[in-house]
């Protein structure tokens, strides 16, 4: 993920639940005793929001498997959704199902057209810092049997 970031994003932090080595990013491990209402990725993001000093206008959140293509800045908005496209992994069937789930991106194109977006994809989303601090990530979220994963956080001035 870090290799795909443009040079303008030069303050990159990886938020992990266990110690890892990420070239080009400052790695932070969420302490086990950190407690908040959010779980999993939301918990990691909330810990990062509280702990890491951010003096940038936007915080851009990317999943660890998100590869950024053609990044040319962000539009003037408070919450900016990056477009999602699937990459094929081990299964052609799940790849096709993921394409079908995205519905040719029609729904995502409507992200900025509704007063309340129907769906926000957390694998690539930028939030204005002051909005993030006002709303926080400290919300109850669903527990699920997904593998323990980590979100990655990069700060942008674009």
């Amino acid at each position: 993920m870090v290799d795909s970031l443009p040079e303008s994003l030069d303050d990159v932090h990886a938020i992990a639940e266990s110690s890892i080595d990420v070239t080009g990013a400052s790695v932070h491990v969420v302490p086990d005793d950190f407690d908040c209402r959010a779980v999993r990725k939301g918990r990691a993001q909330e810990w990062a929001r509280r702990t890491l000093d951010c003096h940038k206008e936007f915080v851009l959140y990317l999943d660890e498997d998100s590869i950024v293509e053609s990044f040319k800045g962000l539009p003037d908005a408070d919450i900016v959704q990056l477009r999602e496209k699937p990459r094929r992994t081990g299964s052609n069937l799940s790849f096709l199902a993921d394409i079908d789930r995205m519905g040719g991106q029609l729904e995502q194109r409507a992200f900025a057209r509704l007063s309340i977006p129907l769906f926000a994809w957390g694998g690539g989303i930028a939030v204005r810092s002051e909005i993030e601090d006002a709303t926080t990530w400290d919300r109850k979220s669903l527990w699920s049997r997904i593998p323990r994963s980590f979100g990655q956080r990069s700060k942008s001035t674009t």
Partner: peptide
Amino acid sequence: IFGLADAVCRNEA
């Protein structure tokens, strides 16, 4: 205000 970026993220299915 919500915005949609031109940037594309390729994510593992």
